[in-house]
Design a protein around this nucleic acid. Structure first.
Lengths: 185, 185
DNA sequence: GTCTATATATGGATAGAC
DNA sequence: GTCTATCCATATATAGAC
């Protein structure tokens, strides 16, 4: 129990790291500022010095993920062929799902994050665009189901403890295999 | 705003219905007894008359799902061929995922439910057994990844709003197609 | 930059009246 | 079977001292 070493200067990042870990363990709703403060060995007030509110922390934690999704969409949107565009989107989605691993699971599943997505237009658009590129504008039941399995499967699997030991590169490749099998009509 | 009609005699079931709906919307952690009581137009004390605690409600809501999982496993365990056994397990898993739809999503994703699973040995065993039947006792990375995609994909997709309009039978069939494509090595 | 103290709300839970 | 009243713990958040 060495006294909490204040590595100094990066207090904000330390709060974000602790928040990320706790969000993963207990969900956003199950994580209090007290828990974050305790993990850092500081008081809640110290946390409030770095962030205006809990919502501020949540938004800061998840912004990078949605920025990545937006980036993947923007790159894909420039591709003329629908087939190639979908391929690129899936590949980009897997890349970011693996890179963010623990964080991304919550994007698809945590009710608090779902509310956040609804609230922040920027995030909401990213998710909507993703659906359209993958399933098309007016998808039939089979496409809708396949896309739902694909997205839930990718994001859920990337965060599954069962694959935690698999290195990023290998996991990326394995998920790509699964995705190809799924969407290969 | 007609005064809350107390259909009488089924107060317990009405609490469970309200809880299920709220758990789906806000997650278990994000649902308070106050919210449940409000939705029924009663006081929290009235809810406490039907259940000892919030945990009691949670356990009662999720028990049927885990009982179904246990039943699927028990039936599958009696099948000698490993191939056929896995097929039967997947089919049974899809059947219960579709039948419970909104509830099952939380089983894979809600941190509060994850803690519940850890706490209740009966539930924990069901989940562990499911993994072993699907992936085998010492699975390689590829199998672990495929099973993770399969389970997350099935449960996540069944609860996805995008497939809400698809009838149970059709959704079951479509999910089975997805599963076959995924595990067909 | 971190602390103490505090305001205020909400959550889970119980006792006892009706 | 439902309500009022209440207890206690915890949560978010702020003010101000050091």
């Amino acid at each position: 129990m060495a006294k909490a070493v204040a590595t100094r200067g990066f207090a904000r990042d330390r709060v974000l790291d602790a928040a990320r870990a706790l969000f993963t363990e207990h969900g956003v709703g199950g994580t209090s500022l007290q828990m974050i403060a305790d993990r850092l060995g500081v008081s809640t007030s110290a946390v409030y010095y770095q962030f205006r509110s809990k919502a501020d922390i949540v938004v800061t934690v998840f912004r990078p993920v949605f920025e990545d999704i937006t980036r993947v969409i923007r790159i894909a949107a420039a591709i003329p062929s629908r087939e190639v565009r979908r391929e690129a989107t899936i590949s980009g989605m897997i890349e970011l799902a693996v890179r963010h691993r623990r964080t991304t699971a919550l994007v698809r599943t945590d009710p608090a994050v779902a509310e956040l997505v609804e609230a922040v237009g920027e995030f909401r658009d990213a998710v909507a665009d993703l659906q359209v590129i993958l399933a098309g504008p007016a998808p039939d039941p089979a496409s809708r189901t396949a896309v739902a399995v694909l997205v839930s499967g990718i994001f859920g699997a990337a965060a599954d403890p069962a694959v935690a030991a698999i290195p990023d590169e290998e996991l990326h490749r394995l998920l790509l295999d699964c995705a190809r099998r799924l969407v290969a009509a």
